[in-house]
């Protein structure tokens, strides 16, 4: 893990769709084994940035590197566990069948696949509901199952797009504990959120608004530098100065 102190980097990255500029000159480095949060309102370009990191999109200008490899690169996708913003699940299948499918895509099989399914199901507290069809799941349960699918192949990098939307606060706390544990084991986590109090749990934060990165620092530094009392006020401070 320590081969690359900066596991994911973006250098002068812009992304345009036609005439519309979604991301403008983003330069960012995500350190090994930290939880990095991208904080911004919906439409700010968080998901587009995440897709540049996972290689589903290609930057218009600038470069994205993952573990020192220029993206997009198919072989690097094995290193990333991705949880999309929409629950990309096959609702006609049971939770277990979904996990078996996604596990197989990463080459897991047999006993080790069964073992991993039980482990990730326990992390998201779905072990009792594995045989249920996903269309009987609540929104929060689907979210947890998506997270479980991203964890399956024990990737060194986790990219989570709005991971805790609709999950009940007690369970959310449990999931955060699990993410911190993964950090300790060396996993680098990049997540997006628009919930301010959740942002405080990240090691470092990138504030993003209208496709521009406003500030990057630890939550504590962001608050003290701006002389405010909360992340929300700090965001307003930076957003106001940039606009």
């Amino acid at each position: 893990m320590s081969d690359f102190p900066d596991v994911v980097t973006a250098a002068g990255v812009s992304k345009r769709f036609g005439n519309k500029t979604v991301l403008e000159d983003i330069t960012l480095a995500i350190h090994s084994a930290e939880t990095f949060g991208l904080l911004g309102p919906s439409g700010s370009g968080k998901t587009t940035l995440v897709k540049l990191f996972t290689g589903t999109l290609q930057a218009t200008t600038g470069q994205v590197h993952v573990q020192g490899t220029l993206m997009p690169k198919l072989s690097m996708l094995n290193q990333i566990g991705y949880m999309a913003q929409s629950d990309a699940l096959y609702t006609e299948l049971s939770a277990k069948e979904n996990l078996e499918f996604f596990g197989a895509l990463y080459g897991l099989k047999g006993a080790s696949l069964r073992k991993r399914i039980m482990e990730v199901a326990e992390i998201v507290a779905l072990e009792k509901h594995l045989d249920k069809r996903v269309d009987q799941y609540s929104g929060g349960m689907k979210r947890r199952l998506s997270l479980a699918a991203a964890l399956l192949h024990q990737p060194p990098i986790l990219v989570l797009d709005e991971p805790t939307v609709g999950i009940d606060p007690l369970l959310r706390q449990a999931i955060w504990k699990e993410l911190k544990l993964l950090n300790e084991q060396g996993t680098t986590i990049l997540l997006t959120t628009h919930v301010m109090d959740e942002a405080e749990k990240c090691d470092r934060l990138g504030m993003i608004r209208e496709g521009r990165l406003l500030a990057v620092d630890t939550p504590g530094e962001l608050i003290s530098k701006t002389g405010t009392d909360s992340i929300e006020e700090a965001f307003v401070y930076y957003g106001g100065h940039q606009a």
Partner: peptide, 14 residues
């Protein structure tokens, strides 16, 4: 439309 294609394309699947 359900987003599973995008999810598939985020795996090393060709």
């Amino acid at each position: 439309t359900t987003g599973t294609l995008e999810r598939l394309l985020a795996t090393p699947l060709k």
